[in-house]
Design a binder for these strands. Structure first.
Lengths: 149, 149
DNA sequence: GCAAAAGCGTGCGTCGCGCACGCTAAGCTG
DNA sequence: CAGCTTAGCGTGCGCGACGCACGCTTTTGC
């Protein structure tokens, strides 16, 4: 019956979230990349690479964080040289947040580490299974129960 | 090539985690179930239903939380009648944490809500696809890159 | 042109967390 | 059996992050 399918997915998702939320995961992925990039600042920098240069308020809306929280985390990233503030040429009040080359490099490294980690655990799978899973997961995330409001 | 598969999964996982970590998800799942059950206390109560009655220290190890943090969150749950403290008959120092019937009921409701939400989004899928996905996800979580240390 | 609105940074109160302390009870050793 | 060490618990305290509100500047609209 389909009922058990939903519960099974919910259960698996639960344990997955439980394990991935741990600070230890971030610690492992950002190991040796400097003090500034931690579980708090990473979402900001990573989000900024997705949105491109934008204001703190816009970034806050994008990553579901308060405007002032983004500002303070951006402070730390700026001090570490991973993020740059520049006045918006189109709006005198606004200051744009932009990822520096060094910041982009670090984000790429962490993402590559995560991908490699997943990659390695998938080595035991038949290649076709892995591709099917990836496709299903993407579909589940895109149009799934946690899509944007 | 398998490289893109790993990156695709990593990317999908990223957006999934980003959306599920939001406090809004917890707010929706625990809506109308009282103030005591929120994103902080839920992991404790849910974890306790998994472990069964145990000490705060053991529960802390199980849910990767500091002992004292478990104690304080348990205080709130106890005041709400969702959790019960009872002296360990086998050890005079220890006090066991145990889920009350009411607490178990609430956990079941939230889990059912989550399952239903997933269920509904899976209605558009072919049933066989959903089952394959569930099986893959379980395998991925069990033996995957985030397994226990 | 001037008032209302939007954007930004910062001070401040609040809250959760981890550490350290004191206390009680169990275990171990001679 | 007596004393010392160890384990378990709750709590006080300092620290850090967060959200709100304030003041300031610039833009927008009438």
């Amino acid at each position: 019956m389909t009922n058990t399918t939903g519960q099974e997915i919910a259960d698996a998702l639960g344990t997955l979230l439980r394990r991935t939320t741990r600070a230890r995961l971030y610690a492992h992925l950002t190991e040796g990349l400097g003090e500034a990039l931690d579980e708090l600042t990473y979402p900001v920098l990573s989000g900024l690479t997705r949105t491109g240069p934008c204001s703190a308020a816009d970034l806050g809306r994008a990553v579901e964080l308060d405007r002032t929280t983004v500002t303070r985390r951006a402070d730390r990233l700026e001090r570490a040289g991973l993020l740059r503030r520049e006045p918006d040429p189109a709006d005198g009040r606004a200051t744009l947040l932009a990822v520096t080359d060094e910041g982009r490099e670090l984000i790429q490294v962490t993402r590559q580490r995560l991908a490699a980690r997943i990659e390695r655990s998938l080595d035991a799978w038949p290649a076709s299974d892995a591709e099917v899973f990836a496709r299903c997961l993407r579909r589940f995330v895109e149009a799934g129960p946690f899509a944007e409001d």
